[in-house]
Amino acid sequence: MMTPAVCSLRRRFPKAEIFVLAKPWVVPVFEALPYVDRILVYDKAGRHRGMAGFIRLVLDLRTFRFDAAILFQNAFEAAFIAALSGIPMRIGYSTDGRGILLTHRPPLFPRSRKIHQVDYYLGILKGVGIPDTCRKLCLSIGDRETEKARYILDRYGIRRSDTLVGINPGAAYGPAKQWPSDRFAALGDRIQEAFGTKILIFGGSADRSLGVRIRQSMRYPAVNLAGKTDLSEAMALIRECRLFITNDSGLMHVASALKVPLVAIFGSTDPEATGPWGYRGRILESKISCSPCLEPECPLGHLQCMTRITTDAVFEAAKALL
């Protein structure tokens, strides 16, 4: 969701070298951004593990003699790294007790005002006089990734003429963001029955068993890709889909950025803050008194914000987009 901010930064400083410091799992997102010159990997499990690795990271960053650091992440660590790296201009919201480490502190939005995360990131730039000249999510899938996606589909017997519908049953934050798996299975069967599509099940390594469970619960065949692709492959495969049905998740934002029509199912989180930006599709949510609670697990134990969203409702939303 920070891609419009990176785009706006590039438009304001067209000749600047823009580096991104990112953890390994998210690197493919920035590789798909045409505005980034170089990605530096923060590998806490490898080169930057432990205190010695942290010092190595700081020394690595010092060699580049950066002029400024824009800290989109609200974390003390991000500001601490930038300060130790000798970066003279450190811009970010004064959160997590890090204000003393920042040289420029854009004003925070009032808690009473609901804003989308995209605007939250753009607010950092606007707070230091950089206009939000770009407000669209942007990802670019290269030829190599497209070829890899086609190879994966060929391996599963998917023809180029097949209509693909992706379902994404996982969500990293917790089970309160996950629509029931048996409903994803029933939905996949109904869509195949009605439209003759092929169903692709997406997910990361933590979703392997979830993908297996959904696949085994379905009456019709589906291709279970959960835990079997890296992020760059998943992004390229999502672009091949006619429709993407998903919980509130990172892959939801990928589909939105790639302009793939989507149905987004929301439970404990707030679509006004983290919903698909500029999406082509529908948001489904059940407005009950305790939602959005923003909790990873339902504190009341009933998960009605999700269970009240029926298979029929999601099917009708999907039907309207196919």
Rank of each mutant, 00 (worst) to 15 (best):
R239H: 15
D270G: 09
E240A: 12
G281L: 04
K228Y: 04
A264W: 01
L294G: 00
D230V: 05
M235L: 12
L284G: 07
S286F: 10
V254K: 00
D248R: 04
D248M: 05
I283A: 05
S256M: 05
A257I: 00
I288M: 12
W277Q: 08
A255Y: 00
G275D: 02
D248C: 08
A222L: 08
M235H: 13
S286R: 14
G278V: 02
L243S: 09
C293M: 11
T246W: 04
G267A: 08
A273S: 15
L237P: 06
E240C: 14
E285I: 04
D270E: 13
L231W: 07
I238P: 05
F266S: 03
C290Q: 12
N247G: 05
L251I: 02
S286P: 00
E285L: 14
W277R: 06
C290G: 11
T246H: 09
L294T: 10
A226T: 05
D270P: 11
L225S: 11
C241N: 11
I238L: 04
A273C: 14
G227F: 07
M235Y: 08
G227T: 09
P261T: 10
C290R: 10
S268E: 11
T229H: 09
F244D: 05
A236V: 04
L262E: 13
S286H: 14
L237K: 04
E240G: 04
Y279L: 11
T229Y: 02
G278R: 06
L237V: 03
N224A: 08
D248I: 01
T269W: 01
I245L: 14
W277D: 01
S232M: 06
A255H: 02
S291R: 15
F266A: 03
P261E: 09
V223L: 12
E272V: 02
S268V: 00
C290H: 09
P271V: 02
Y279R: 14
G281K: 02
C241Q: 09
E295S: 15
L251Q: 05
D230H: 11
L237S: 10
P292R: 11
A226E: 12
S268G: 12
M235A: 15
R282E: 13
I265Q: 05
H253V: 00
L231N: 10
K259D: 15
S256G: 13
F266P: 07
E295R: 15
S289C: 06
A222K: 10
N224W: 12
A234W: 01
D248L: 01
C290P: 09
D248V: 00
G278H: 03
D230R: 14
I283Y: 06
A234E: 08
P292Y: 04
D270W: 07
G227I: 08
M252E: 05
P221V: 03
L294Y: 14
D248A: 06
L262Q: 15
G278F: 01
A222M: 08
D270C: 12
L231T: 01
V254T: 05
C293H: 10
S289T: 12
